[in-house]
C-alpha cells in the first residue's frame, strides 16, 4: 500500500473515529440513563412506571407487532386469566413462533363473574398491535410493559401514513417510522449494554 493510500486510509479511519465518538458517547449516555432507577416516569395503579420508548425497550422480553387472533378467558387456580393468541408479523426483540400465545391476569368468565385488574389493557380480536411484553411471571403471565404504555395500536392516517396510537386517543399518535427508529436505537443500546456484562 502506498504512503498516499495509507494516509487516505488513516484520514478515513480518523473520520470514522470522529463520527463514532459521539455515537458511542451517546450510547454510553443512554446506557447510563437507562441504568438509573426508573422513577422518572409515573406509575399506574395497576400502577406502573411511566416510560418512553427507551424504558419499554429496556424492560421487554418481546417487542413485536401482530394481530389479535383470539381471546379466551379461563379460570385457573385462584385466578382468572385471559389467553391471547397473536399472529406475529414482525419481531423487534425476542424470538418465538408466528403464532404466539400470551396469558394475562384477569378477565370475565362465561358465567358473568370475573377478575378485574384496573389498568390492564384489553385485547380485542382483529386489532393490530405493537406490544412490549414482559417476561413470564412465576404463574406464566405476561403483561404489556407499563400496562397501557407497552400497548400501541397500529393504524394509518387518511394519507396512508403508518401511525402508532394510544388506544382511544386521537391526540397522542406517533409516526410509526420515527417511533421505530427510537425503538431500534433503544434496543441496540440495550444489546450493547447486555453484551458488555
Amino acid at each position: 500500500m502506498s504512503l498516499k493510500s495509507r494516509k487516505a486510509l488513516f484520514r478515513s479511519a480518523s473520520r470514522m473515529k470522529r463520527a463514532l465518538v459521539p455515537l458511542l458517547a451517546g450510547l454510553l449516555l443512554q446506557t447510563w440513563l437507562l441504568s438509573r432507577p426508573a422513577l422518572e416516569t409515573p406509575l399506574q395503579a395497576g400502577t406502573s412506571v411511566p416510560m418512553e420508548w427507551t424504558g419499554l425497550a429496556d424492560r421487554c422480553e418481546h417487542a413485536l407487532e401482530g394481530r389479535v387472533q383470539s381471546v379466551r378467558v379461563q379460570r385457573v387456580a385462584g385466578a382468572v386469566e385471559t389467553e391471547v393468541t397473536l399472529q406475529v408479523f414482525r419481531r423487534h426483540q425476542g424470538t418465538g413462533p408466528a403464532q404466539q400465545l400470551i396469558r394475562i391476569p384477569g378477565g370475565q368468565l362465561a358465567d358473568g363473574s370475573g377478575l378485574l385488574v384496573p389498568g390492564m389493557p384489553r385485547f380485542v380480536e382483529g386489532e393490530e398491535l405493537l406490544l412490549f411484553l414482559s417476561p413470564e411471571s412465576s404463574r406464566g403471565w405476561r403483561v404489556p410493559v407499563g400496562l397501557d404504555q407497552g400497548f400501541w395500536k397500529l393504524t394509518r392516517d387518511a394519507a396512508g401514513r403508518r401511525l402508532l396510537e394510544r388506544p382511544g386517543s386521537k391526540r397522542i399518535r406517533e409516526d410509526y417510522e420515527e417511533a421505530m427508529l427510537k425503538v431500534t436505537q433503544a434496543l441496540t443500546a440495550r444489546r450493547i449494554r447486555e453484551s458488555g456484562r
Binding site: 426508573a38 395503579a45 395497576g46 400502577t47 391476569p105 413470564e136 410493559v145
Partner: peptide, 20 residues
C-alpha cells in the same frame, strides 16, 4: 403472587373479583 412479571414496571395492583 405471579402478578408482577419481571420488568413489567408495575408497582401495585388491586385485584377486584366480581359477580354477574
Amino acid at each position: 403472587s405471579g402478578y408482577f412479571p419481571a420488568g413489567s414496571g408495575l408497582v401495585a395492583l388491586t385485584l377486584v373479583w366480581y359477580g354477574s
